[in-house]
Structure formats: structure tokens, C-alpha cells
């Protein structure tokens, strides 16, 4: 038996109540353990797409499958356990009084025993190297620490898929480098939405270019990003790192 793809979108369409059609027939498939980037200019539909992956938005038309199961009202709780979403602004994601309480929030909601919750939260904080901050209030952390804790809140739920919205925003170069090392060490299926194309080159072998709610290109990151005409036509540019690697590409 072949394993079903981690994420599968079939002809996904979505229109906001005001009539804006944000997604117009998006189909894609992400295999288990794969790292895929979703890139595109502002308003391309990236955030709308991400919100479909854990059932926050429901498709107007088409289907979203996670681990082979379609997202529906009955499966949404299960899907939210399987798909860990890391928000663009960690301040939106951290809402409890202490770092530990925040990381424990997910496992606690899944009805685990206090001992199991404690174990999971400790392990998740250790994984991102933030265990020493466990008693600190989240709003007093630095941007890098907040980001790491936000990732821990998601890891504590033991998700199969990690979805990250602009993971490197607001990070200083060292914090960004640490994040890249951390993300590289995860063997989850990863879907990264980012404008930080250099980060994408380092982390995702495959990229999907979105514009106007449709997929414009889907292929190997280096190949895609080296296509200057394509990038410029969709509000992006060829990242510097590729200029050094493939000066004439």
C-alpha cells in the first residue's frame, strides 16, 4: 500500500464574503517528509491557502486532504492535531501567562494526562532550546525567542505537518540562521510560506509560485528562482544566493 500524500489540494477555490476570489482552482500534492515553499507577491493567495490547511477556512469548491483524509466538520479536530501552524506574528500565537503554559495549551486540549502534558511540553521546549525560559511571560521574550517558543507550541502537539507563515520575519541575521538550522533538523513534512527567498533556497528543494490565486509554477526551487523573467513577472526577484551559485543561470 502506498502512503497517501501529507497534503493534497484538488481544484481548491475560495471566495471571501465580499466576493474577492482569493483561490481559483489550486491543485497540489506534498509527499510525506517533503519540504515545499509557497512563494508569491502580496495578495497572491498564500495566506488564504494556509488557512485552508487546518480547516480555519473551508473550501468554496474543491477539496483539501491531509494524510489522505478530506477536511470536513467531523475531521477538523483530527486535522488540527496533524497540522501544526506557526503564525507570522508570534504575538498572535502566544497568549498564555507563561511560556510553559503556552506550550502545554495544545496537549492539554487534546485531553492528555497532566504528566503526559508536562513531558510533551518539556520535550518541545528542549527541542527548540528554550527550556530555560519556561517560567517567563511570553511577551517579554526577544523576537527570536518568541519565534522558537511559537514553534515549540506547535511541536508539543506532535504534528505530522509543519506549516509556517513567514518564519523569518522580524529576526536578526543570527536568529534567522538559528531558525534555519532548527527547521532543517525537523523531519516533518514542511510547508513554508515566505518572501525570504534565500531561506527557501536553503530549506526547500521544491517551490510553488502562486499569483492571483492560481499556481503559476511548481518545480525545483533553484530552477524556478533562476528564471528571472518568471520571477519578475510575478512580483519576485532572483535571490542573491543563486547569483553566486549560478551566475549565468
Amino acid at each position: 500500500m502506498t502512503t497517501p500524500p501529507s497534503i493534497e489540494l484538488r481544484d481548491l477555490c475560495f471566495a471571501y464574503p465580499d466576493g474577492t476570489r482569493a483561490l481559483r482552482g489550486v491543485s497540489l500534492s506534498v509527499a510525506q517528509g517533503e519540504s515545499v515553499a509557497i512563494v508569491g507577491g502580496n495578495g497572491a493567495g498564500k495566506s488564504t491557502l494556509v488557512q485552508h490547511l487546518n480547516g480555519y477556512l473551508m473550501a468554496t469548491q474543491g477539496e483539501v486532504r491531509v494524510g489522505g483524509k478530506p477536511i470536513a466538520r467531523e475531521t477538523v479536530a483530527q486535522v488540527r492535531r496533524a497540522v501544526g501552524l506557526v503564525f507570522q506574528d508570534p504575538d498572535d500565537q502566544l497568549f498564555m501567562a507563561s511560556v510553559f503554559d503556552d506550550v502545554a495549551f495544545g496537549p492539554l486540549n487534546f485531553g492528555l494526562s497532566p504528566e503526559a502534558v508536562e513531558k510533551r511540553a518539556t520535550a518541545a521546549l528542549e527541542r527548540v532550546g528554550m527550556l530555560h525560559l519556561r517560567e517567563r511571560p511570553p511577551h517579554k521574550l526577544s523576537a527570536g525567542e518568541k519565534r522558537a517558543v511559537a514553534i515549540a507550541t506547535v511541536l508539543a502537539m506532535s504534528p505530522e505537518v509543519l506549516v509556517m507563515d513567514e518564519p523569518s520575519s522580524n529576526l536578526d541575521p543570527c536568529g534567522r540562521r538559528r531558525l534555519i538550522h532548527l527547521l532543517r533538523s525537523f523531519d516533518h513534512t514542511k510547508l513554508i510560506v515566505s518572501h525570504d527567498l534565500e531561506l527557501v533556497v536553503e530549506l526547500c528543494p521544491r517551490s510553488i509560485l502562486l499569483d492571483g490565486g492560481v499556481i503559476v509554477a511548481d518545480g525545483p526551487t533553484v530552477e524556478l528562482f533562476s528564471n528571472e523573467a518568471l520571477m519578475l513577472a510575478h512580483g519576485l526577484e532572483r535571490p542573491h544566493i543563486l547569483r553566486h551559485l549560478h551566475p549565468h543561470g
Binding site: N54, R80, D92, N109, F110, P114, E118, T153, V154
Partner: peptide, 22 residues
Amino acid sequence: RAQRIYRAMISRGFDGEVRVLR
């Protein structure tokens, strides 16, 4: 902002029941 926070809560399994560790 409130919507984003709510989204973060339901993403982590919040179902309206307030649970505490201890």
C-alpha cells in the same frame, strides 16, 4: 487581531472548555 488570536487557539485544539494543568 482578536481573530488571529482566536485562530491560534482553535489551531491548538481549543473547543470552549478551559483546562488547567494543575
